[in-house]
Write a protein that binds this DNA or RNA. Sequence first.
DNA 1: TTGTTAGTGAAGTGGCAACTTCAGTATCAG
DNA 2: CTGATACTGAAGTTGCCACTTCACTAACAA
Lengths: 111, 111
Amino acid sequence: MPSPKATVDRVFHALGDPTRRAIVEKLSERPLSVSQLATPLDITLTAVVQHLQVLEESGLVHTEKVGRVRTCRIETAGLAALEQWIDDRRSLWERRLDRLGDLLAESDESE
Amino acid sequence: MPSPKATVDRVFHALGDPTRRAIVEKLSERPLSVSQLATPLDITLTAVVQHLQVLEESGLVHTEKVGRVRTCRIETAGLAALEQWIDDRRSLWERRLDRLGDLLAESDESE
DNA sequence: TTGTTAGTGAAGTGGCAACTTCAGTATCAG
DNA sequence: CTGATACTGAAGTTGCCACTTCACTAACAA
């Protein structure tokens, strides 16, 4: 299992690019072939394949080739890692607000 | 209100950079001054300020200057936008799996 | 077999953004 | 006042990465 840190790095880097985000958005609706992805994106097939490699390495997309056509679909791992990171941040941040709340409560008592 | 699309673009771009993510991670623990942020990051103060500008424009961080010290803290809007995007993707993706499930159920009935 | 479709691989280019330097301006301490 | 701290702003450099071209192979159709 790769370190979660490295995974999160990859996922954020992957989704940092608007074209790759567009690909993920398309694929959350339905699986598509590489050419089907390329057509509306207005970039070359080669570029799309390069994006797909990044997305696959980051666990956001899974692709499988049957015959001469490569079918791409969303994979859960990537988005899950992303969500985990957000949850971690939020829990740290809320814990801090809780402590702050405690302090305020204490000072209320002493009045 | 800016279009959510533009906001999401900004947030993803902001978090695509590892240094900015490190800043957000630090700030989810506690508010910090610009210099306090810069010290462990091993880059110049100027660079940190530039990152902070990006983070502020994307709604991930709020900063406020009092005296000569600028204090930085996490803001909810950015992470919320991110989470919204993830939820949208997941709901599309699950809806698709549901339809798939319905189809399978139907074919079960007809056996 | 010939042609077409679908994708692969290597190699090069251009632009942007992360970072630096340097020269400033306030703020506060002594 | 002097000096130190905490930033600010402009301007330049550099490396990376998104994208391209072109040459290629594999699958399928006629």
